Amino acid sequence: MYAIIETGGKQYKVEKDDVVFVEKLAADVDSSVEFKVLAVGGDDGLKVGKPYVEGVAVKGKVLKNGKSKKINIWTYKPKKGESRKMGHRQPYTKVQIESIEA
């Protein structure tokens, strides 16, 4: 059985015991989180919600909050002598899917 969940403006296809990196959630390590379910698929076919599936819960456990690798951005304007270096580290939350309750 699999489910398509929505969090952080993105959609993820998850199964039980999957580990996913999602946009940072306001949750502590070892806490439980519940996701909105857009669709559920299994042996009996695919069930799609309008927009969410009623009576289905996907629960996960927060393993880690962190930041990804640094991305360096270099902007440059030719003939002006103008350049600027910037960096960015995207925060994430590492979540392990514990159950899909349909």
Rank of each mutant, 00 (worst) to 15 (best):
L38Q: 08
K16P: 14
I71L: 13
G87L: 03
I4E: 00
V53G: 07
L25V: 04
P78R: 12
Q11R: 07
K69S: 06
A27T: 02
E23N: 06
K36I: 00
D43L: 11
G45S: 02
W74S: 13
L38G: 05
Y76F: 14
T75C: 09
F21G: 07
H88C: 03
K64H: 13
K47I: 12
D28W: 10
V95E: 03
Y52C: 13
K69N: 15
V56H: 10
V53D: 06
V95W: 00
V29F: 10
G66L: 03
Y92M: 04
V48H: 12
D18K: 10
I5M: 10
A102D: 05
E6P: 03
V14S: 08
H88W: 11
Y76W: 13
D44N: 13
G9F: 00
F21T: 00
V33C: 05
D28M: 04
V14P: 13
I71E: 14
K16D: 02
W74P: 00
K77L: 01
R89L: 03
G60Y: 03
D28Y: 02
E6V: 06
E82P: 05
K80W: 01
I73F: 14
P51T: 01
I97E: 07
N65R: 05
D18F: 03
G9Q: 02
G87S: 09
P78I: 04
K24N: 08
A102Y: 04
E101H: 08
I97G: 07
V20H: 10
D17V: 00
T93F: 02
D43N: 11
D28G: 15
F35P: 04
L25P: 09
T75W: 04
M1A: 11
R84Y: 10
K77R: 03
G8Y: 12
P91L: 09
G81A: 02
E54Y: 00
K16S: 04
K94A: 08
T93A: 08
K79N: 06
N72G: 11
D30M: 10
D18G: 06
K67A: 02
Y52V: 00
I100G: 01
S31M: 09
T7P: 14
V40L: 11
E34H: 15
Y76A: 04
D30A: 15
F21P: 01
E23L: 09
K69T: 11
L25C: 02
K50E: 08
G8N: 07
V58T: 01
T93W: 10
K47D: 06
E101K: 09
V58F: 00
E82R: 15
I4Y: 00
K47H: 08
A102G: 14
V19D: 11
N72A: 14
R84H: 11
N72T: 15
K69M: 04
I5G: 03
I100M: 03
K69W: 04
K24T: 05
I73A: 05
A39M: 15
D44Y: 02
S99M: 10
K70Q: 07
V58Y: 00
E34Q: 10
V53T: 07
A102E: 10
D17F: 05
K59S: 12
R84A: 09
G8P: 06
D18M: 07
P78Y: 13
S68W: 02
P91C: 08
M1N: 07
G42N: 02
T7I: 11
